[in-house]
Nucleic acid binder design. Structure first.
Lengths: 338, 338
DNA sequence: CTGAAAGCGCTAACAA
DNA sequence: TTGTTAGCGCTTTCAG
């Protein structure tokens, strides 16, 4: 066992409380300061946050529960949140899992047991039971993007409806009418919002909805692949596909390659989520870029304020607008017609 | 403040110690068991790991320090490690940062303060001071890939030399002689190993080393971009480029697109690290795939054993062989000559 | 199998 | 400014 504050006290001849106060930013006599610093260095003393927390009932730790980090969307949020919270003196306990298995309901209790001062939940929709268990602990929660069964919660989200609307509208303006949507689970809040945007755009331009063109099951890569296969087997193929997220898009692209489909000649493709990848595909992908930095910042800000007891604007819903990035994966049917 | 073990004791009329023992897997009279379970549910009791740890000097938490998770390599490791450790009852404190700023030297003390039973360090090379601070705490450390200034440490690494050798040999067998290397910092262990593999292959095939073809500075995207620009401005352009990691490769591809270079007609490209991306690029990228699952598993296994006091094989160095995936980004100069 | 008591490392009152 | 004291929630002897 390494040195404790007691050892420092013994070494310097000062009282525990003095050392403690100094460590926590209090002022001590310069000479004592020097002595303490020296003793700390000499004994390699590291204050144990766990012991501090026991007393102050703060753990200086927050939890982040999210989808798998090998999705760049989650990775970016994780990275940004971790960095921000660390700058505020918190460390980050991270748990992730596949969205489509119900691990989640085990994550959160585990997280609670591990001891956290606040919790950010991203990509996941929690069950009622879990939500009430969390609410019972009184620790502040910020939901990122999804919408669980909390009684009332702060949440930060991308305005998916507007992003989806805008990109579908772009397809329409380029002359597309047969537009397919490959989407996540209907149980997912974000998936619903994206579909809503898609439907609104069609409605506003008087384009009839073709149920065959809407394939929704989950956000997995594989599903994107299968969905694309299915679409291409339709007697009347779509001229454009709107992929509702990044992982789906990867699967769709794989299918497109294996089917030998040319973009945008044979098929136009747009997607929610914009990443490095989008630029490296040829042709470059037209996509909806989420305000990831903003999402992370707002979530952290909200959580920090709640942890500091500022509930003045609770519960708050913050919606940030995404941005469409227009590249070369959409064919302009009008100009072709000329 | 939510319920404590005391409340359960009061509620059930049993002693603290009995409850504690039951919670930790001890046996109690069936009737008491029922009572305790009921009280726990009723009061929504969650045992505080922080308080447990104070007594048992275990935190049930491990730390992972790594490069940014928006690199799929790091993301994969993180995900795998977190899942594995969680299955063993540990939660994961994650800190990451840009490899090329010296945040790292602040991470580790922060990590130590936060309280962990073990530490995995990936991608980072720690300073001597930090290493001795860590060694002082006696908590087990496993290094993934890089090699710090620890006195003695367990480490798990990809055998970079053999991966690099094999992929460069492939280029040579396809008739390439003018092979460039875009590499990370010479201070990086992995970068050195990858260069070593490159040099050995050239040496074995009696190909002279052209210093202009070796550009090494760091693993950043931007640097890959610049390096590629530089290579293409050379009076004698290389016929092939070996990118030493994923992020560099992204930058190289961006440069290739913007310069209008055709792969593999004008230039062959191979890279360390293989991801979804590699398959979606056209043409598909020939790459070295690291045994990521194996790396994560071995690191966890080693750390778990050390945390359980098993030091029988300390210090252990585990090296796993990568695998080359041959795709279409390399031009066969011999068959062209026929 | 159960209970009483001590104490893990630290902070927060309060007193000096 | 510094010291004293009590106690955070839990585990761990050691008796019963």
């Amino acid at each position: 066992m390494s040195a404790t504050i007691k050892d420092i006290a013994r070494e310097t001849g000062l009282a525990l409380a003095t050392i403690s106060k100094y460590i926590n930013g209090g002022t001590v006599r310069p000479q004592n300061k020097k002595q303490i610093d020296e003793a700390i260095r000499k004994l390699n003393y590291v204050p144990r946050n766990t012991a501090r927390g026991l007393r102050s009932s703060k753990t200086y730790r927050i939890g982040l529960v999210s989808g798998p980090p090998n999705n760049p969307h989650n990775a970016f949020l994780l990275s940004k949140i971790e960095n921000t919270m660390r700058a505020h003196g918190y460390s980050l306990t991270f748990m992730s899992g596949d969205k489509y298995k119900d691990h989640v309901n085990k994550f959160v209790p585990h997280m609670l047991r591990s001891g956290i001062d606040g919790l950010i939940i991203s990509s996941f929709c929690l069950s009622k039971d879990i939500c009430s268990a969390v609410e019972h602990t009184k620790i502040p929660v910020v939901e990122l993007e999804e919408h669980s069964h909390f009684h009332r919660t702060d949440c930060v989200q991308t305005s998916c409806t507007s992003g989806a609307y805008e990109i579908v509208e772009h397809l329409i303006k380029m002359g597309h009418q047969k537009i397919a949507l490959v989407n996540g689970s209907p149980a997912s809040y974000t998936a619903c919002e994206r579909k809503k945007g898609y439907l609104r755009a069609l409605e506003d331009y008087d384009i009839p909805v073709n149920p065959d063109y809407i394939i929704a099951e989950n956000y997995a890569n594989d599903f994107g692949y299968q969905a694309m296969q299915k679409l291409w087997n339709l007697p009347e193929r779509p001229t454009a596909v709107f992929s509702a997220n990044y992982t789906l898009c990867l699967g769709i692209y794989e299918a497109i390659y294996s089917l030998g489909i040319r973009i945008p000649e044979d098929l136009s493709v747009v997607s929610f989520d914009d990443f490095e990848l989008s630029m490296l595909l040829s042709p470059q992908l037209t996509a909806v870029r989420q305000p990831l930095t903003g999402l992370a910042e707002q979530a952290c800000d909200l959580l920090l304020r709640r942890m500091n007891g500022d509930y003045s604007d609770f519960p708050r819903t913050i919606r940030l607008k995404p941005e469409c990035i227009y590249r070369d994966s959409v064919r302009d049917l009008f100009s072709d017609a000329k």
